[in-house]
């Protein structure tokens, strides 16, 4: 008995069908974020948490006025303050909004909506990083103005934004892993220590940073942005793990 074997065309058609049905188009941030923003709308993204954002602004302004603006502040302190403040602002925005959600108990309902708290958090983090970039550029300009013979504006902006995005990367990684509140606090604590060490040990950061070629600053900045976007993507498309995993986050 002879068995009818499929022709080459039939085989190729079958492979094509399997691939078409089996391989879903990969989601990209570039495609998904604009759609999410359009559907959820910026106003709703910050619904009920404007007071938390205002509080974050107040904290950052207070920090700037106390530690960075007064005359006679050591240049080294100003530089480290600059690298600290942008992530600090990011931390305040994220921390206060998460705290507000927890206090109000609104997170559970949001977790059962079409667009969950995970999507809201990812979008908020992106917008927060835009707020931080604006702040960073303004402050870098200010520091550059005060210390004209020191670092160049490009270096200040490049390095402080790199600091912001590396900090953001660490924060998103911790959120994604669903670590406990202590695990989440580890990121700001480690960051604070890293910023304080050069001040306490009186390391001349200006000399070290001035020695960095512009190319290196550029590469570090691009790497930081890429790491941040990768973490946002993993967080957004990482799937639901349930529990308070992404509530506390």
């Amino acid at each position: 008995m002879s068995i009818m074997m499929p022709s080459k065309e039939e085989k190729e058609q079958s492979i094509h069908t399997i691939l078409e049905l089996g391989m879903q188009p990969s989601k990209t941030l570039k495609d998904v974020i604009p759609v999410l923003l359009k559907r959820i709308r910026i106003y709703n993204l910050f619904f009920g948490i404007w007071d938390a954002i205002f509080l974050a602004f107040v904290c950052v302004i207070a920090f700037t006025v106390v530690f960075m603006l007064p005359e006679g502040i050591n240049r080294n302190v100003r530089y480290m303050g600059l690298f600290f403040i942008s992530p600090f602002f990011y931390l305040m925005l994220h921390g206060f909004t998460a705290w507000k959600e927890l206090q109000n108990g609104t997170y559970e309902i949001k977790m059962t909506c079409h667009y969950t708290l995970r999507e809201l958090t990812a979008l908020r983090m992106i917008i927060f990083s835009v707020f931080c970039i604006v702040l960073d550029v303004i402050l870098s300009g200010g520091i550059w103005h005060f210390t004209k013979e020191g670092m160049k504006l490009f270096q200040l902006i490049g390095l402080s934004l790199s600091a912001l995005f590396f900090y953001g990367t660490a924060t998103m990684a911790v959120l994604r892993k669903g670590l406990s509140i202590y695990g989440q606090l580890a990121v700001p604590v480690i960051w604070s220590v890293l910023c304080l060490v050069p001040i306490i040990l009186k390391i001349d950061m200006e000399a070290i940073l001035l020695a960095l070629p512009n190319v290196v600053v550029g590469i570090v900045f691009v790497a930081a942005v890429c790491c941040y976007l990768v973490q946002i993507k993993k967080y957004l498309f990482g799937g639901e793990k349930g529990g308070f995993y992404y509530v506390v986050s």
Binding site: N104, G105, T106
Partner: peptide
């Protein structure tokens, strides 16, 4: 879903 502790913005 209505959770045990209904969260809202005052």
């Amino acid at each position: 879903y209505l959770p045990q502790k209904f969260g809202y913005y005052k």
